[in-house]
Design a protein around this nucleic acid. Sequence first.
DNA 1: GTCTATACTTTGATAGAC
DNA 2: GTCTATCAAAGTATAGAC
Lengths: 192, 192
Amino acid sequence: MYGMDTRERLIQSTRELLWERGYVGTSPKAIQERAGAGQGSMYHHFRGKPDLARAAIDRSATELRDRAQAAFTGPGTALEQVAAYLRRERDALKGCPVGRLTQDPDVMKDPELREPIERTFSWLTGRLTESLTRARDDGDLGAGLDPAATATALVAVVQGGYVLARATGSAAAYAQAVEGALALLAVRPGED
Amino acid sequence: MYGMDTRERLIQSTRELLWERGYVGTSPKAIQERAGAGQGSMYHHFRGKPDLARAAIDRSATELRDRAQAAFTGPGTALEQVAAYLRRERDALKGCPVGRLTQDPDVMKDPELREPIERTFSWLTGRLTESLTRARDDGDLGAGLDPAATATALVAVVQGGYVLARATGSAAAYAQAVEGALALLAVRPGED
DNA sequence: GTCTATACTTTGATAGAC
DNA sequence: GTCTATCAAAGTATAGAC
């Protein structure tokens, strides 16, 4: 946080706190303390908690999208790219910074806060559907499978994998969910 | 809530609020109002918010387990029972009353509150592994599949299906995730 | 842009009367 | 068992000086 200006530190602090504690669990005071900024600073740069949250969520959504896109454009066949996305290094115990907000009623009832979340999952499912369609055309995926339904199932495995990792207290649960899903796609087991 | 005594109404109100708003988002005052009970009543029957939450979470965990068990002991082959569990009527937009607590740091750092959650997912994954093992013995499931990993993937699909339903604002996302997963298990599409 | 002061509400609980 | 104070702390701002 040292090379950042105050506005940027406020956004980053808010992202971290939303990830760790959700929207209800995050107070302006906690944000200010983590950012090393005072009350005045925060209310100068943002109109209030919702405004700051919107900036933070937007940033997290963009970052998630960029990281996913990197996996999908990596080396290998379309199916291998899907596997790479699922197996990508993740801090499974922390959960998904975007998906977790889905549980927060105050976030979901505010159209401004909800929009980037909706858009993220819509994009991700679409992108995965694209790759799975190519995989099917390559003959790497069962011809009888619906790419869109399969994509939705895989996004769910990722999100649910986070839930299981937190429930069991172990990132291994995430990995097992992913490997279980990949085995169903007939992808050979990975290294770990 | 009309045939219940005060203690029971407090537990039910807490269950609902934990489901809708999580632990941080649920205040003793809101619980009392929904239960139609005063401060004094609540603190007479429970030592405080964590004590009441423990009773509520225990109840939700037990109920989840009983409902799952009903699907697993219904008619049909082991694989059909698994499909019945996944397709069971659910209020997908409300999410999982147990899984959602996994996101709440104040719940997860308290061993008393965490225990029923951990136990629920451990039991569910184990129960599903059992059914999938039988399905494999029946020849209904690929011999090369690991029942435990497959079970973990399916529990993740359910939990992630809830996330997607909330993110998109439509229960259809849950159904699509489940049908996508069942297709990978080579289960024929359902009625809806 | 940042700081301090002030204000009003909600949270989570305790005390004691009935 | 339930009710009504009462309370200290935290939440979420606004106002105005610097």
